[in-house]
């Protein structure tokens, strides 16, 4: 999974700390999310997407085959 969290965060001039506080997680979790090393819950993913005003699939991008069961 690839994410565009960093891109959106920088667009809105937010620090990792600020984003973490806005979506209710620890800063380290934002770091993990930005590196694509943590799959967030549906609730957290929606919270992040809503904060940036975009659909979830614009923030979290799965490559072809990654969603196959």
């Amino acid at each position: 999974m690839r994410t565009r969290i960093r891109e959106f965060r920088e667009r809105y001039r937010l620090t990792q700390e600020e984003l973490a506080e806005l979506v209710g997680v620890r800063r380290e979790t934002v770091v993990f999310l930005e590196k694509g090393r943590y799959n967030p819950s549906l609730r957290l993913a929606c919270r992040i997407a809503r904060l940036f005003g975009v659909p979830v699939e614009e923030v979290f991008i799965f490559e072809e085959g990654e969603l196959r069961g």
């Binding site: 973490a20 209710g24 997680v25 620890r26 380290e28 979790t29 943590y38």
Partner: peptide, 9 residues
């Protein structure tokens, strides 16, 4: 005053 445990933890 900080979040101690979030969903990842």
């Amino acid at each position: 005053d900080e979040l101690v445990v979030d969903e990842r933890l």
